[in-house]
Design a binder for these strands. Sequence first.
DNA 1: CGACTGGCCGAGTTA
DNA 2: CGGCCAGTCG
Length: 743
Amino acid sequence: MDLKKELNKEQYLAATHVEGPLLILAGAGSGKTRVITYRIAHLIRNCGVSPYNILAITFTNKAAREMAERASFLLGEENLYGIWINTFHAACGKILRRYADRIGFNSNFIIYDETEVQVVLKECLRRLNIDEKYLDPKAVRKYISKAKDEMISWKDFTKSHDTYNNHLFRMVSEVYKMYQETLLANNAMDFDDMILMTIKLFKENPDVLDYYQEKFKFIMVDEYQDTNMAQYEFVRLLASKYKNLCVVGDDDQSIYGFRGADIRNILEFENEYHDCKVIKLEQNYRSTQNILDAANRIIKNNTERRHKRLWTEQGHGEPITRYEAEDQNDEALYIVSAIQDGVRKGMKYSDFTILYRINALSQTIEKALTRFGIPYRVYGGLKFFDRKEIKDIVCYLRVLDNPLDDVALRRIINVPKRGIGEVSYNNAYDIALREDTNVLNVFLNAGNYPELSRTASKLSSFALKIMDIMMKKDTMAISEYVKYVIYESGMIEELKRENTDEAESRIENLMEFISVANEYESEVLESPDAENLNNLTSFLQNIALSTDMDKQEEVDADTVTLMTIHNSKGLEFPVVFVIAMEEGTFPSMRAEMPEEVEEERRLCYVAITRAKKKLYLTHSRLRLLYGRTNYRVPSRFLRELELKAEKEEDRSEKSTTFRTGAVRKGAFGRVVNSVGDVKALNQQTGKVDTKDFKVGDRVKHKKFGNGTIVKMEGSGDKTVVEIQFDSTGMKRLMLAYAKLSHI
DNA sequence: CGACTGGCCGAGTTA
DNA sequence: CGGCCAGTCG
């Protein structure tokens, strides 16, 4: 391992910085992970630091796994034994598991996902007699989430808002309080709590904090720009003693503001740690100069950032292609043709990736890829762990691990169908609250309660069944037990009886879940991390913190990849298509404030910098989305990139495959409909002024300047036009009064 | 109790 | 256009 030879000057300086705070501003593709892993190797091999004293934190399991793999490639796995390379949540989970009792939890606490959080919130609203129509559970969730990101407890929430005079805040704070009490009673936490509870643990137990400060003498945090206040505080507490804190990040790639990431954490790192060293990594090893130029050009439109300029020693490479499609089908066909073209020239399907701002956009592309027999894989759409049958089996395991887990119990109570419903459950739940016991216990003794008499025998036999399966818990390995539960629960039998394709695929998924358990077992056995446990509790926690992105993919799969831009962060691909570069989608219409638009721009920057060799940006004049076809205005980002649209080039030369009548008809079918609608509308009105304008027209307004008509509603004098103005954005105007003129 | 249906509303990114 | 929920009927 020759650091000088294998790293550039800045990378070398960063990797060999040992003591004191260090901020690495790592541009996209600048070898960030390389620096971190070399730094780990340097600490251990050249500085005599024990792996036991190192904590490396990432945001995703995938990043953690990659870092661990690369570090063990440098050092050998045996020399990493005891190191913590984990996500924030996994690291906190491990700490909490050990000291759960100090903060009133049991060590087999469970982590609720968003769906379960919703269930609990609805339950709270019900118990507080608040109508869901009056206070939307989703809105409450937003308030609570935001509060937690900022480390505001329900007590603080009550103090920080005027809950005496503001009815809304009073209600939210009551729900927040009951929500936390319910979580505690169920021995459960949500994602945010894992960080918050760890902070609480540290603050209330100096001995514990001191232990971990001593243990983690060297701390590294990846993707630091994505940290929220709570994560910042967690790191600050741990690092405050030795201050050997190395954070790596790129303010230009901060795209998680919506989940509380605070870009100030990285921008103000130097103020917090004033003796810190700052190193910028600007040399890019991923992309061509053309791609980097585009990235630099777009990001310089942001004001809240540290100056950085990516460069490469590679050549300029291929120019960036902007394609303006007629409609979404045309866009899809363009992409299909480019892929077919590339494959014909010897490229692999896996060289191509299609990125989009919103999941809904994958639909059309998927259809086109399917029609032309191009293999593809979608990341993030319907998630494995979100599938009904997977959630069911997970809930079974949760109840078996922790009989107090009422939320899980509620879910499996009627899986498979056994004639127990909402009413029985709610009755039992109320009894359990009244008698200060748990629901399963009430089930067991259902015969004693008159309000449960109707279903008493079903309830108690279900409870007995659960107890029965629970007895076997510690007698077999995880995967074996998972299999046992799947069959013993009766889920398989029920699905087999259904005898449909869908049931068939559900069974397959359950079998796949057994392999997940298998995989977990072998991972635990091989792990250099000494504190992993081979038990149900830790398996469940592992599952709770898993996403589809983490599932090990067959490496040889030669498929096109589809994913959201958010999911693509940290990855790279030879050829990238960024689709639907249109106002309202990208940037999102929800980004109204300047800082929100800046985040969208950073998202665009992330998308562009994923490409290694070739970048395509596509947009469409018309798009069918959410059931309606609308005229679309090219994204302002395209203007900022100063790219000229590729004209309807002679694609027939490129590919003859898709110039088929059927496809063309499909492409035009929807367009004709939409234009037809506008025409019909114009004919109805009979008014000259309405007829003069139609969707897609370029118009001039006295005050707002030039723009494009995007939508027209109503008729005659009441016609309302929506116009996307070039400089002032979207406006709704009454056509009769707008005094528009054609350009 | 639960399956089915019609209507309504929403439609963004995620560990 | 699709998912979810409430209401109805078996």
